[in-house]
């Protein structure tokens, strides 16, 4: 197995875990599903921590399902930080009129304030 073959196998596993790809041959599909759940839960927690307080206040109990839908539809691309992820999610909410219109700069500042 060359570096290229290993890269392909790792990409196939990761696609199965976060992008709805098929479980790779030889790996227990039940464990793939379990790992996928774990990755989704971790990203949901990380996103929830980074989101501005106003998003939590506006969405309340609706936030969890919305985050799950966002995560399923938007696998995190290489080079996208968790902060970028949270900003993109918030921009989507703003476009739907669910949170007040603010500049991206203000949103990023709000998140940084919350986290650091």
């Amino acid at each position: 197995m060359s570096r290229e073959e290993l890269a392909a196998r790792q990409a196939a596993l990761l696609a199965a875990l976060v992008a709805d790809g098929p479980a790779p041959a030889g790996i227990d599909p039940a464990r793939v599903a379990l790992e996928a759940d774990a990755l989704r839960a971790k990203r949901r927690r990380a996103l929830a921590r980074l989101l501005p307080v106003e998003v939590h206040e506006r969405l309340g109990a609706e936030l969890g399902p919305r985050l799950d839908a966002w995560i399923a539809a938007h696998p995190r691309r290489t080079g996208t930080s968790m902060r970028d992820d949270a900003a993109d999610f918030t921009v989507t909410l703003r476009a739907e009129g669910l949170v007040p219109r603010r500049s991206l700069r203000e949103l990023v500042r709000a998140m940084r304030h919350r986290w650091h």
Binding site: A11, L13, A15, L17, R43, T78
Partner: peptide, 25 residues
């Protein structure tokens, strides 16, 4: 562990195959 492949980020630590070739990598 690996955390990215094929243009995607896992966000958490994933195992490496325990093969000689993977060890070289």
């Amino acid at each position: 562990a690996f955390v990215r492949a094929g243009g995607l980020e896992s966000g958490h630590l994933l195992p490496v195959p325990r093969t000689r070739e993977a060890l070289d990598v």
